[in-house]
Simulated assay, not measured.
Amino acid sequence: MSRRIIITGASDGIGAAAARQLVRDGHNVILVGRSPEKTKAVAEETGAPHHLADFARLDEVRRLADELKQYGPIDVLANNAGGVFQERRETVDGFEMTFQVNHLAPFLLTHLLLDRLMESNASVIQTSSVGNRAGKVDLGNLGFAKGYAPMRAYGTAKLENILFTQELHRRFHERGLSSAAFHPGVVASSFAGSSTDLMGKVYASRLARSFMRTNEQGADQLVWLASTPAGEGWESGQYYEKRKPARRINRQTRDAALARALWARSEQVLGLTPAA
């Protein structure tokens, strides 16, 4: 059965690869990207409608939500956009870039689309990372005003994606909403390509990239989760690696109180009315 699937970060990498496969499979895909040129190119290739939004600007996320509401019920929201940044910097909204792009922006988009998602018993999918194991959520230092390091900030944001997934499940699964997060594997994409730290050097290494997964391989779980209803091969609230619930995962993911507190703090800093 065809599903209406929104994919953010769809202009490149696993987002674009997933969009191509899902369109081939007959689904109604809506692309969201930051780059006008890249997003338009994928849209022309797939025939899918597209929208532009830079997650470093929350006003663009709010505009995007208004545009997406015009499509009516949404079956899948794939929060795939993200990034890692070499140096600590703040967005025009006053938040640390990694925290905003990877967590706050998809949190806001999901919140603004919640009515549409609820009315169609939708799935919300987060592209997380095995890097979550190196993360540590400190509610008093969410923006890494102290102790910033690129991979520490990124790992923490990917941990926040999992906590968000778990809290979405706790709050809304009994009302029909499902959620899942996944690690796509180490993919030979442009991710971290501009970074000058060890991670950037690894991604730039021809030898290292020869052992990485292709974008199509990295997109496999996104395609699987987006095209399959919860309960038919995957369970809501879980974090997946290689289509199986991950065995090794950050210990903070077992802290339900932290997931609730992160949700509340996210609503607070975004000035949102708490979701019921």
Results as ranks from 00 to 15, higher is better:
residue 229 P to M: 07
residue 153 A to I: 11
residue 198 L to H: 13
residue 9 G to T: 06
residue 184 P to K: 06
residue 43 A to N: 07
residue 2 S to M: 14
residue 271 G to N: 15
residue 41 A to G: 01
residue 106 P to Q: 05
residue 13 G to D: 08
residue 73 P to E: 02
residue 94 G to T: 01
residue 10 A to Q: 12
residue 22 L to I: 07
residue 83 G to R: 02
residue 235 E to P: 00
residue 245 P to I: 12
residue 34 R to C: 03
residue 222 L to F: 03
residue 58 L to P: 01
residue 54 D to S: 05
residue 19 A to V: 00
residue 262 L to K: 07
residue 266 S to C: 04
residue 272 L to T: 11
residue 85 F to L: 05
residue 75 D to W: 04
residue 52 L to A: 03
residue 23 V to E: 07
residue 51 H to L: 06
residue 207 L to W: 12
residue 81 A to P: 09
residue 220 D to L: 07
residue 123 S to P: 01
residue 52 L to V: 03
residue 206 R to T: 13
residue 274 P to R: 12
residue 210 S to H: 02
residue 5 I to K: 10
residue 125 I to R: 13
residue 22 L to Q: 15
residue 63 R to G: 05
residue 262 L to P: 10
residue 195 S to T: 08
residue 227 S to Q: 11
residue 80 N to L: 01
residue 87 E to V: 06
residue 221 Q to T: 15
residue 71 Y to E: 13
residue 58 L to W: 01
residue 108 L to W: 03
residue 16 A to T: 12
residue 209 R to G: 14
residue 85 F to S: 03
residue 67 E to A: 00
residue 117 L to E: 05
residue 139 L to Y: 09
residue 85 F to E: 04
residue 165 T to C: 13
residue 57 R to F: 09
residue 239 Y to E: 00
residue 202 V to T: 12
residue 263 W to R: 14
residue 32 V to G: 02
residue 174 E to C: 01
residue 178 S to A: 10
residue 219 A to V: 13
residue 268 Q to K: 06
residue 79 N to S: 09
residue 173 H to A: 15
residue 166 Q to H: 15
residue 170 R to L: 02
residue 135 G to R: 07
residue 86 Q to P: 06
residue 174 E to F: 03
residue 40 K to Y: 05
residue 94 G to K: 01
residue 125 I to M: 09
residue 110 T to E: 13
residue 240 Y to N: 04
residue 7 I to A: 05
residue 152 R to K: 14
residue 35 S to L: 13
residue 90 E to N: 05
residue 80 N to W: 07
residue 223 V to L: 00
residue 241 E to L: 05
residue 121 N to M: 00
residue 203 Y to Q: 14
residue 37 E to N: 15
residue 270 L to Y: 13
residue 154 Y to F: 15
residue 215 N to R: 08
residue 48 A to N: 12
residue 59 D to G: 06
residue 229 P to E: 02
residue 63 R to K: 06
residue 23 V to Y: 05
residue 254 R to V: 01
residue 233 G to D: 01
residue 274 P to A: 08
residue 76 V to G: 08
residue 124 V to E: 02
residue 91 T to F: 02
residue 207 L to F: 14
residue 186 V to L: 13
residue 89 R to I: 09
residue 248 R to M: 14
residue 73 P to R: 05
residue 247 R to P: 07
residue 219 A to C: 11
residue 52 L to H: 03
residue 4 R to W: 10
residue 232 E to A: 06
residue 190 S to C: 08
